[in-house]
Amino acid sequence: MAAAGNKQALMSITYDIVAGDFVRGGEAAGKLKRVLQQLGLGANVIRRTAIATYEAEMNVVIHSYGGQLSVDITSETIEIICSDCGPGIPDIDQALQEGYSTASDDVREMGFGAGMGLPNIRRSADEFSITSTVGEGTQLQIRILHKAGE
């Protein structure tokens, strides 16, 4: 993340996300949550990170052909990049609206696809940006500020 470049990552973790794997879906976010708990970050920070990464991970599971969740922890921030190979998002503004979803009926029956994923990520993040190329994939950048040791 360019803006964060001046902040050195004290710790970096990358998780692979498999498309269509609902059984493992959420594991990356779960593992990250445990790491943050072990680092002793504040409950609110952990919770927001957990929500943002869970939703990002499930988006990759549901919509893409596979991707990665990369996390850098610096002394003041949690920098998350969630990137996938996939169809991309043609209209990002629309995708950011609450309730908008392109999820299939099958997926909706499982309780996903309520159109709250991206809005929830944006709400949980301190900084959020999204880039997407149709036919190639989508990349989310999420920054969550944590006051060290809190």
Partner: peptide, 10 residues
């Protein structure tokens, strides 16, 4: 929590 101090926890 592994340590009260964030740097030590890392």
């Amino acid at each position: 929590k592994l340590d009260d101090d964030f740097t030590k926890a890392i």
